[in-house]
Nucleic acid binder design. Structure first.
Lengths: 126, 126
DNA sequence: GCCATTTCTAACCTTTTGGTGGGTATGGTT
DNA sequence: AACCATACCCACCAAAAGGTTAGAAATGGC
């Protein structure tokens, strides 16, 4: 960890590709919503998430949570009781991703109106 | 524009939805790659972009650039000559989006290894 | 004994996405 | 006269994403 440039911006092309893939994976619509919900709601169970995230199907929630768990973003805790009880919470990594997305989030909030204006203008020209 | 909280974090649910949609739109794989290429290469024409963005099809490039133009992220300049000559460059808005994505970009770069480790561990357990 | 509960899987089917190949315009080159 | 170059558009097809439904599994309450 000694003699390297601080943050090599766009290092090797294959690393670039991996980074792009990772962003693509992680910038998924449902992942974003689940991430947000876990950030503001803390640890919660499957059913709560399903209710909190508007419009998600059970299948997508399961799928999204599995992928997030695989990527090390959430921890899944199974309490072996009947009926099943499963909790999900963010890891440090997951939390740091949430913070990284703040910039985009703020951008979207701050520029939503501008984008909408641009769209109207675009759609209005013949 | 007078009496509101500075930056209402997650204001109304319908604004939330719009912001989410916008992020979803903008966090698209091809949009990200084109954005990156336009950031580092500056203004350039269609063919150059097609060559620079690895693996993009003509259709996707056209589609992506159109969407970005509609959202006010790029400006499309047509030089009415034969054969056609069209230049694309980022707007201020587009550039600011690029900066907003830096956080995610850095996160992905910094945590790529951690994610890969997590995946291996996940896949290895029976 | 039967039903409700909770999470998750598997089947099926629809919608969306994206690639390919063909077509268009037009003036300069061969 | 045929052809090339450039930036598209359009029609078609394959693949992937995602919704819906059914059901498994185990057990405490009726």
């Amino acid at each position: 960890m000694a003699n390297q440039p601080i943050t090599s911006y766009s290092t090797a092309p294959e690393v670039d590709a991996l980074v792009n893939d990772l962003i693509g994976r992680v910038a998924d619509k449902w992942t974003l919503l689940v991430l947000e919900q876990l950030e503001e709601g803390g640890e919660q169970r499957f059913g709560a998430l399903a209710r909190a995230v508007p419009g998600i199907s059970q299948k997508m929630l399961t799928q999204t949570l599995r992928a997030m768990e695989r990527d090390g973003l959430v921890i899944r805790t199974v309490h072996p009781v009947i009926p099943p009880h499963v909790d999900y919470r963010l890891t440090t990594l997951g939390h740091s991703l949430g913070e990284a997305f703040c910039g985009v989030w703020h951008w979207a909030e701050a520029n939503l109106a501008a984008v909408q204006r641009s769209r109207s203008a675009f759609d209005a020209r013949d």
